[in-house]
């Protein structure tokens, strides 16, 4: 499961831009991942400018 570290996230949307299955919602200061539809391809984790995403479990 991809975990969002809210204290690091800058809500910039770089993760959203690479998500191949469009499962990330970006509000003004909130990021939400639909874990059921996420394929865990890890593109979002790799591209995050501030390492706010992490795979766990």
């Amino acid at each position: 499961m991809i975990v969002i570290k809210n204290d690091l996230c800058d809500f910039c949307g770089t993760c959203v831009s690479v998500c191949p299955v469009d499962v990330i919602e970006l509000y003004e200061a909130r990021l939400v991942i639909d874990h059921e539809k996420c394929t865990e391809c890890l593109k979002c984790v790799k591209v995050c400018p501030v390492r706010a995403l992490e795979i766990q479990g």
């Binding site: 910039c12 949307g13 770089t14 959203v16 831009s17 690479v18 998500c19 191949p20 469009d22 970006l26 593109k43 790799k46 591209v47």
Partner: peptide
């Protein structure tokens, strides 16, 4: 913006490969 989802919802391919961001 770069995170455009409006295009995707309309069926356009806007998501980027890692080498293109």
């Amino acid at each position: 913006g770069v995170e455009s989802r409006v295009g995707r919802w309309a069926g356009l391919k806007t998501n980027l490969g890692l080498k293109d961001i």
